[in-house]
Simulated assay, not measured.
Amino acid sequence: MLQASFAASVRLRELLATKPELADPPHPVSPPRQGSLEFRHVTFAYDPHDPPALREVSFAVQAGERVAVVGHTGAGKSTLVNLLLRFYDPQAGEVLVDGVDVRHWRRSELRSRFAVVLQDVDCFAGTIRDNVSLGRPGISDQRILWALEQVQARELLERLPLGLDTVLGERGTGLSVGERQLVAFARALVGDPEFVILDEATASVDPLTEARIQKALERLLAGRTAMVIAHRLATTQLCPRVLVFHRGRLVEEGSHSQLLARRGVFFSLFSRQELAS
């Protein structure tokens, strides 16, 4: 055990000593909250020898707007999120958050304005309190309880005898899939994010839990800018505007009904999904 721990500590030290490829700017800016996102002629490839994941992509999202992003696997949906949070920089074009290029932000502040809820939820060995707050300073128990109640998790708290002090096992052992998703929603909301990114965040829950979450989302997304990466195209009906990506390009844009009437890429995707179901 000692030898295995020693080997792990060596790898951990190497990881912590790795310098990030993307550095903070020497004079970072901190713009006031506006709630706007914009891609201007963005082209990006993960490897210079591979075809670009995004090609000349331009679109803007206004404050408080809710947009859905759809497309085949590999169309560039996840790449949009990676560039917004500045895990990568584009080879061409600009990605703007609140009117400022993300390369001019301090990365920690940029990411603190976003909440990302994924389809596959990561819960950690620790208390419910730890899993919701993620150790962020200044988040009180009252704030955590408020967030859990807002995502319709009151029944979960009542079921757990120790409440916020209930200890979860690794990967959230002790909670159902739906309950882990509720914890993920509370985790996202507790920090009062300016932007919310949902990656088909209700796909893994039962219909009853999904209905509860959808009801909470309608209330909690009010006033926040939201981007919904939709794998089930019926989800796009919840968003007034849909962006359709194909092979790294933004090829269609409009409402769910407008895109179906256009009988283009979105119509083809929707028809195939309907047949498969």
Rank of each mutant, 00 (worst) to 15 (best):
F245I: 07
L12S: 10
A211V: 06
L148A: 02
R143C: 02
D89R: 06
F39W: 08
E149P: 00
S255Y: 02
E194P: 00
S176P: 05
T225K: 11
Q34L: 14
R159P: 00
L148C: 02
R13Q: 06
R219Q: 15
G223M: 08
G71I: 03
E38K: 10
R40D: 09
Y46V: 03
L198Y: 04
V242L: 06
L243P: 10
I139P: 09
L157Y: 04
F59V: 02
A17H: 02
Q152W: 01
A211S: 15
R143M: 13
F266Y: 15
V177W: 04
L118S: 13
K77Y: 11
L156N: 08
S204D: 11
E94F: 04
L275W: 10
S277A: 13
E94R: 15
G71M: 05
R159C: 02
C123R: 01
V95S: 00
E252V: 05
S112P: 00
I144H: 03
R241G: 00
E155V: 01
Q214H: 15
L157A: 07
G174H: 10
F245V: 08
R272I: 08
S257H: 07
S257T: 12
P161V: 07
R247F: 01
E274S: 12
D122N: 11
E200C: 04
G64T: 14
L269N: 13
V61A: 10
D165H: 05
P90E: 08
D98T: 09
P161L: 10
D98E: 02
R262F: 05
R113W: 05
H27N: 14
R263M: 08
G178T: 10
V61Y: 02
R86D: 06
L2C: 06
P31G: 03
S36D: 05
G174E: 12
R249L: 02
E149F: 00
A216H: 08
S176D: 07
M1S: 15
Y88S: 01
D89V: 03
